[in-house]
Nucleic acid binder design. Structure first.
Ligand SMILES: [Mn+2]
Ligand SMILES: [Mn+2]
Ligand SMILES: [Mn+2]
Ligand SMILES: [Mn+2]
Lengths: 216, 216
DNA sequence: TATTTTTGTTAGACTAATCTAACTTTTTAG
DNA sequence: CTAAAAAGTTAGATTAGTCTAACAAAAATA
């Protein structure tokens, strides 16, 4: 499989987290690749048995395709964890590097990373690392955005890898595992005031709360 | 620069260690790519100012080209060192992986590797790591093959990355830094009997002695 | 339902990297 | 010094991945 094909599969996997089916337009936007190009790649992946393609219908990953995508995401997340835990990178520096390293062809390389990290289950952003068969343990996290007044939750993961977002979280002194309570929600812009570990209070815009994943 | 271009430059750099000028045929053999392909790539690299190309003449790297190649080789060797020193790989496992990782686009990634290794000067095979400007400190090593009877030398580097060769060196219990004395040279096949650290004696074929680099 | 907008597809072109077949130049050997 | 061999080049084809322009179908809206 080529690097390009791997990136398409990975994008489809991420997009189908919600809706299972993925439109050509969504993929196109997500990859910043024009629709006709996506269309022809979809046919190519279908010919390889990784995608179900029917004219004018949304795309679906086959079982095979899901597994392949899961294995690439596994490598991506293992690499991110290694970069943070073993090489001292900040969580906002690792996504771009992992985006490239995930395509290295070497089983032992990733096995060794896994071993050195003692077989981690999540990456530095709280996302689950798929197992050796490409299967992802589904997390039942919700967006902080959807929480109600006074609800108490735990900050479990982030839903964006944009470095400006991650840097903001750092600046706000928020960390995975923190206890968050919703103190106030502004009707107008959906911004939230929350308390963190009962020690300090911050205000978060909806753009931020929609990328914070929490568990009750 | 593309991965492919980087690999051509690197190959040229290696081949021009001896003769400065590189024939299209040599490059073709070295890369396992047919001559017409090499020819057109040579023109392309010439257009970018990295190679001097004149019809029917051998190829030469420009100053720019040499620097670019040196920087890729730097990455390759830093990665090999990291894989051995920090990730526990054997010296015969790292070349293939480094061949891929050397193309990662991320300055900080390689800078951090350099730092974690405490700015190493040689890779696990004894080859010098080019500096940040792509310049290589030239080593004055000779092949064990060329040594004379009774000469005492130090094993400094290997001249092949083939894993079967490296495994053989391991099996023979030879290590970089070992003191070697030439005890006997067979007229017929140029095989050598040598003593190692004055503790044991082994016989090496010419194929082996031609890939062992030593210093007096 | 009819029209407009959105989404998806086809056709055709382009670049990078590769190949084979045919031809030319240079080098080597008789 | 010529003929043969080796090395290098050109031409033309192929595959992967991308694009724009034009067209078609599906979905949304009036
Ligand atoms: Mn990531
Ligand atoms: Mn990627
Ligand atoms: Mn190497
Ligand atoms: Mn390489």
């Amino acid at each position: 499989m080529t690097l390009t094909e791997e990136n398409y599969l990975k994008a489809m996997f991420h997009l189908s987290a919600e809706s299972v089916e993925v439109s050509v337009l969504d993929l196109s936007k997500n990859l910043s690749i024009k629709m006709p190009t996506v269309n022809s790649m979809a046919k190519k992946l279908a010919a390889k048995g990784l995608v179900i393609y029917e004219k004018y219908k949304p795309l679906t990953l086959t079982k095979e395709g899901k597994k392949a995508a899961g294995l690439i995401i596994r490598k991506h997340r293992l690499v991110e964890m290694f970069l943070v835990q073993k090489m001292g990178f900040a969580w906002d520096q690792v996504h771009e590097i992992a985006e490239q390293v995930e395509h290295i062809k070497s089983q032992i390389f990733f096995d060794r990373i896994d071993e050195l990290l003692d077989f981690p289950k999540v990456d530095p952003h709280g996302s689950p690392i798929p197992d050796k068969f490409g299967a992802v343990l589904h997390q039942n996290y919700v967006k902080l955005e959807q929480c109600i007044l006074n609800q108490k939750v735990v900050f479990k993961a982030v839903d964006s890898s944009q470095d400006s977002f991650l840097k903001l979280i750092d600046k706000l002194n928020l960390k995975l595992g923190d206890n968050i309570q919703v103190l106030d929600i502004q009707e107008y812009d959906k911004s939230m005031k929350v308390s963190v570990n009962d020690t300090f209070e911050i205000v978060l815009s909806q753009m931020v709360t929609s990328n914070i994943l929490v568990q009750s």
